[in-house]
Amino acid sequence: MMTVLSFFNYWIVVVLMMIGFYCVIARGNMVKKVMGLNLFQTSVFILFISAGKIVGGSTPIVREGVELYSNPLPHVLILTAIVVGVATTAVGLALTVRINEAYGSIEDDHLGDEDDGDEQ
């Protein structure tokens, strides 16, 4: 029981990842897909941040009297990854807006059917 609890942040990661992944796959609504994608990415961010935490470590700012610091590198990486995530969300939402203008709907399941043509 203790081992399960001591890894609770990783459990959160797994749960969030599955919820996000489910949203991406199962939802037809494009906004919900983008939200799912966000959840999915966020879970990975938490994974990285968790890895950077060192038990008893302090915030990684050099000051007197502190011997043990948490690893700052994952934070820096995830800052970049968050920027990437925001950019992805922005592009995804922009596309959703354009699709809404072009089709009048953002339910992925029904789109494309009305275009006659050559899809398999």
């Binding site: 494009m30 596309l95 043509g117």
Partner: peptide, 12 residues
């Protein structure tokens, strides 16, 4: 307009 759909699906 299907380019938008293609792009969105590729994005996901």
């Amino acid at each position: 307009r299907r380019a938008l759909l293609a792009s969105f699906r590729y994005l996901i």
